[in-house]
Design a protein around this nucleic acid. Structure first.
Lengths: 171, 171
DNA sequence: ATAGCCATGTAACCAGTTACATGATTTC
DNA sequence: GAAATCATGTAACTGGTTACATGGCTAT
């Protein structure tokens, strides 16, 4: 039995909450893990087709608008359990702003600072949004834990941006 | 003229420092941008072949061990300038530990805490390594700025991990 | 009835990873 | 002359993105 990739595994994870269609799953995934695990519609449909062909999920009779909910099978539950029993790998960060910054000596200084300013606004908004979610309370403790990560992360980025002038004007 | 992808663009960026072979570039990239922009050998050789076919770089006569250094062409310099003049996109984070945590209700609690502990050690080591680099000083201000990011980031992750028990024992 | 959104999916491409394969040079 | 390592690259696959295409349902 081939291994699950994390994206497929997360679909199985969400199906523990009951049957859902591809469309539903895209929405759930964006809301719950979208901040640190991106996925696209195409990918979801492809993985669902693959999971179904491997017997890990089963299509239910189509509902209105050809909505095709999938349900977990016992094999799917087992495959998820096997996946989650493996230690999670290291995180991957790809940050184009840092890439641009690495080549700071080849960029016009004002342009570079403009990029940083744009990102500062983005991170301020995200931090505010996370704080709103946190203040609203609710959700399960695990989702709250991921939001706590988001808050720490955004705070760190903003602190770093605040530090930048003193790093970049030196010399 | 098709756009450059960030990986190809970074190769052009490094070639501003003088001719370098694929092997050299892998080493430089890992050292300078590896913490927030991963790339593999295969990718580098493929991008170099592509850049050469587009006239953005030019192979120099091979040295010992078939070492084939490439140099920037004027067109390459222009292409890099055009790339860097575009605002950098949003960062992408893919963090399997957060994914596992999202499904915390489906995991044995001790196992989950074990995963977190493993990552705490990893982040502690990385933070220490960044601080060593910082203390050693030197390098250009832009590289120092990316290291400052790394320090802020690792500190944030560790602070979050320290918070976790209070988030997860509630309820 | 028609406009807008819901919901599905396919196709083509591009980027990233892993595994394989080879030969030259240096060091002992 | 053997072992280690430097340096190159190819092949095959997997995963991720973008663009395209279609039709059903709902609200007005």
């Amino acid at each position: 039995m081939a291994e699950l990739n994390p994206t497929a595994a997360s679909l199985l994870g969400f199906l523990h909450g009951g049957p859902a269609s591809g469309y539903d799953l895209v929405g759930i995934a964006e809301a719950v893990i979208g901040d640190f695990w991106s996925l696209t519609r195409s990918q979801v449909y492809r993985e669902l087709a693959d999971l179904a062909s491997r017997g890990l999920i089963r299509a239910q009779p189509a509902g209105p608008r050809a909505k095709r909910p999938y349900e977990l099978t016992d094999a799917g539950r087992e495959a998820f359990a096997a996946w989650i029993a493996e230690p999670p790998g290291p995180e991957q960060i790809r940050y184009p702003l840092l890439l641009a910054l690495s080549f700071g000596s080849l960029i016009d200084r004002d342009r570079l600072l403009g990029y940083v300013g744009t990102h500062r606004v983005i991170h301020e908004r995200r931090l505010a949004a996370y704080r709103d979610v946190k203040a609203a309370g609710g959700r399960d403790q695990y989702v709250r834990a991921t939001i706590a990560f988001g808050i720490r992360y955004e705070e760190a980025v903003l602190a770093w941006i605040a530090d930048l002038p003193s790093i970049l004007t030196a010399e």
